[in-house]
C-alpha cells in the first residue's frame, strides 16, 4: 500500500515512526529536513500523485488547534479543529484538499502527544463550558486508522477529558477501534453521505452507502452517538428521489435515538481551489455544473442551492427533531 516513506530526520526515533517503518518494511525510506521540502513545492500534480501517494512522517511544531468559523458547528459554542494528517485515502472529486494542497501525499504528524496537550490547554481555558474538537477537516478521521492508530490514541485521551467533545468524521467503515472500545457520550462518529449513484461517480474508493450504514448500525448497537453529514449536497438529476431514498435507507436501519446531530452543507469552494480542481480534471462533469461566484466562493446558483438544501431539510425533519439539524452557512464575503 505504501511504497515510499519520506521522514523528517527529527522524527526518526519517534515511536510512531518506528512503528510505521516496521509496518512497511519494503517501503523505500527517504530522509528530509522538513516535510515542506516534499509537500510544498509548486508544480506538483495532485492528480498523478493521487494514484500512488507516498507517506510523509513529520512533526507539526506550529499551532495545532484552530478555531472553526462561527457558522459551523453542531450545537457547541466553542468549536475547534485539528489536523494530525493532511490528505485522504479516498478520491472525492469535490474535495477541497485537491485545490488547497500542492501534494496528494499522506502527511502524518506523528507528535500526537502535542495535539492532545494543546487540546487539553484549549478546553481548560473555558472553565465549565464544553469545547468541540473536529478531527476530519484535512483527512478522513478513520479511513487510515490501521496505519495511523490516531483514533485509538484519541479515544484514550478523550475518555479522560469529558468536557472535550470530539467529532470523528468519516466515509470509511474502519470502525473496529470504536467497536472494541467503551462508548463515550462526548465522542461523535459522523458519517458523510451522498446518494449511491452520485458516490459511484465522484467518490472514488469510498465504501458503499449500505456498508457505511451497516457500520453505523454496529456502532449504534454498541451505544456510540452518531452523526450524519450531507455535506456537500450535490446537485443531480432525480435529486429529491435520490436524497429521499438515501435518508430513508439511513433512518430505516439506524435508530434515530443514536443520532446526535445531522448537518447539511451546500457545495462551496474558494474560487482559486475550484479553478485548480477544474484544471486537474477538465473532463469532470461535476465542474461543468450550474455554478456562480458568490463572494470569494464558487457555489451552485443561489436558487438551486436554496431549493436543494430545503429539500434535504424537509426530508430529514421527517426523521429527526429540528434541534438535531444543523446547517452549514458558508461565509459569503
Amino acid at each position: 500500500m505504501i511504497d515510499t516513506i519520506y521522514f523528517e530526520e527529527q522524527v526518526t526515533e519517534h515511536p510512531q515512526t518506528l512503528e510505521l517503518f516496521k509496518r512497511f518494511p519494503q517501503a523505500t525510506r527517504i530522509p528530509c529536513t522538513h516535510y515542506k521540502e516534499i509537500f510544498n513545492p509548486s508544480g506538483q500534480n495532485f492528480r498523478i500523485q493521487k494514484k500512488k501517494p507516498a507517506l510523509i512522517l513529520a512533526q507539526n511544531k506550529g499551532k495545532l488547534v484552530h478555531p472553526v468559523p462561527a457558522t459551523y458547528g453542531i450545537g457547541g459554542k466553542r468549536n475547534f479543529y485539528f489536523s494530525h494528517m493532511l490528505n485522504c485515502l479516498y478520491d472525492c472529486r469535490y474535495c477541497f484538499l485537491q485545490g488547497m494542497y500542492p501534494s496528494a501525499h499522506y502527511l502524518l504528524f506523528v507528535n500526537y502527544e502535542d495535539f492532545f496537550k494543546e487540546i487539553e490547554r484549549t478546553y481548560q481555558e473555558a472553565n465549565e463550558q464544553p469545547s468541540w474538537f473536529f478531527s476530519g477537516y484535512d483527512c478522513d478521521s478513520l479511513a487510515l486508522e490501521k496505519l495511523t492508530g490516531f483514533a485509538k490514541s484519541a479515544l484514550t485521551f478523550f475518555a479522560r477529558h469529558p468536557r472535550a467533545h470530539l467529532e470523528l468524521r468519516t466515509k470509511s467503515v474502519a470502525t473496529r477501534i470504536l467497536e472494541k472500545s467503551t462508548p463515550l457520550p462526548h465522542v461523535i462518529t459522523a458519517f458523510s453521505f451522498t446518494p449511491q449513484e452520485i458516490s459511484d461517480v465522484i467518490e472514488r474508493g469510498v465504501p458503499s452507502v449500505s456498508a457505511r450504514i451497516h457500520a453505523m448500525q454496529k456502532l449504534a448497537e454498541k451505544g456510540w452517538p452518531l452523526g450524519i453529514r450531507l455535506d456537500p449536497v450535490i446537485e443531480c438529476s432525480d435529486f429529491t428521489k435520490r436524497y429521499e431514498s438515501l435518508i430513508r435507507e439511513i433512518f430505516l436501519k439506524v435508530p434515530s435515538e443514536s443520532i446526535h446531530s445531522v448537518s447539511v452543507g451546500p457545495f462551496r469552494l474558494p474560487e482559486p481551489f475550484f479553478k485548480k480542481m477544474e484544471k486537474l480534471y477538465p473532463q469532470e462533469p461535476l465542474f461543468a455544473g450550474n455554478f456562480e461566484k458568490r463572494g470569494k466562493s464558487i457555489s451552485y446558483r443561489r436558487e438551486i442551492e436554496s431549493q436543494r438544501i430545503q429539500t434535504c431539510k424537509d426530508l430529514l425533519l421527517q426523521n429527526i427533531s429540528s434541534e438535531k439539524l444543523f446547517l452549514c452557512h458558508p461565509n459569503e464575503e
Partner: peptide
C-alpha cells in the same frame, strides 16, 4: 535545495 523526484 534538495530535489525529490516524485515516486510515480
Amino acid at each position: 535545495t534538495i530535489h525529490y523526484p516524485p515516486p510515480v
